[in-house]
């Protein structure tokens, strides 16, 4: 009795006024439950995730470190994926660079009429996404009197060539000192011995530093899953060039590596109606590209950037 009285008289005692609040423990419990439910709901969009890589895909090594057996297995796996997705069995190669070959490209600025057939031949050949639309080649409509990209225009339409303008297609220049390969944090893009700058689509982490570093706006990123209709698939594929890509990786012109390493011309060249595009082996003195470098007036776009491109612009004289 005395204890009770003491307790009530103690300045520490105060009856708990129920109804005015909850204890911390209760609050934390409710908040934790609510947060857990909200967190689960927050992650619920992941239900739509269709492309979870298998363990093999996830652990795949860099292309330059693959043994021939691993390469074969990977090519088989990718062919199977393409077959499943598109219903077409591809012919997927991983050709090594040719000896004694240094590729270069030349573009006749006096003859290009800006018809953009090269753009779409490239799209058709390289299995590019139709939506979002990816074009490796940008055709600039330049104003006569200067080589000034600031006054150029890429969205001209109608009959070409237009008076007072000339045309300059730009694609990856496959530079000898590429800024893109220098800045890639994982070496997912590198320069092959025959001069082609390639991307290993299974190694790229999608940071887009290479896109920031390229002075020619040559690199493209897959912001969404690329959409390619089945009937438009080109089954002749190369691992480093035109096999279908995934969301979140970079891609760009590869000089049609799967064609050119087999000795063929790139698709953009084959379609050009004015014959403005020239391609070949710089080391072969009989090639048209060597003749151009030797005999024609050649210049390099944005030469002051110091990237030493393998893409030359020339005029007929």
């Amino acid at each position: 009795m005395a204890d009770e009285k003491d307790q009530h008289d103690s300045p520490y005692f105060h009856p708990k006024p129920y109804g005015s609040g909850v204890t911390r423990r209760q609050f934390l419990a409710v908040a934790a439950a609510g947060a857990a439910a909200a967190a689960a709901a927050a992650l619920s969009p992941l239900k739509d995730l269709t492309q979870i890589p298998t363990l093999r895909q996830f652990l795949q090594k860099h292309y330059t470190e693959l043994t021939p057996e691993e390469k074969k297995e990977i090519l088989g796996r990718i062919s199977a994926e393409v077959r499943e997705k598109y219903g077409v069995t591809p012919h997927l190669t991983a050709q090594p660079p040719l000896d004694g070959v240094q590729f270069a490209y030349a573009l006749n600025m006096g003859r290009c009429i800006g018809c953009r057939k090269c753009v779409y031949a490239c799209v058709n050949e390289n299995n590019q996404s139709r939506d979002p639309q990816i074009h490796y080649i940008s055709v600039l409509e330049m104003e006569k009197g200067a080589v000034n990209v600031e006054t150029s225009n890429t969205d001209y339409e109608g009959q070409v060539p237009k008076k007072g303008h000339y045309y300059m297609p730009v694609q990856c220049h496959h530079c000898e000192k590429p800024p893109c390969t220098k800045v890639c944090p994982v070496k997912a893009t590198w320069r092959e011995p025959d001069g082609i700058v390639v991307v290993d689509y299974n190694w790229c982490i999608g940071c887009r530093y290479c896109a920031a570093a390229c002075p020619y706006h040559a690199r493209r990123f897959n912001f969404k899953e690329p959409y390619l209709p089945k009937e438009d698939l080109n089954p002749e594929m190369g691992y480093l060039s035109n096999r279908p890509r995934q969301v979140g990786v970079m891609e760009k012109c590869t000089f049609c590596l799967h064609r050119t390493r087999a000795g063929k011309y790139p698709a953009c060249l084959e379609v050009c109606p004015t014959g403005s595009r020239k391609f070949g082996n710089l080391l072969d003195p009989d090639s048209e590209i060597a003749a151009i470098i030797r005999d024609k007036r050649v210049f390099i776009l944005k030469q002051e950037r110091g990237t030493i491109p393998r893409f030359y612009y020339f005029t007929d004289v």
Binding site: A38, L43, S44, P45, L46, A211, A212, F223, E225, G248
Partner: peptide, 29 residues
């Protein structure tokens, strides 16, 4: 915590659909 979970939810959407859910493009990458 609520705002962080909202961010987590938006990121889940981005993981599923890719960076196309942002305003970035090949031009402003």
């Amino acid at each position: 915590a609520l705002l962080s979970l909202a961010g987590l939810n938006a990121y889940s959407v981005q993981l599923v659909h890719g960076l196309g859910t942002t305003g970035m493009s090949d031009h402003v990458s």
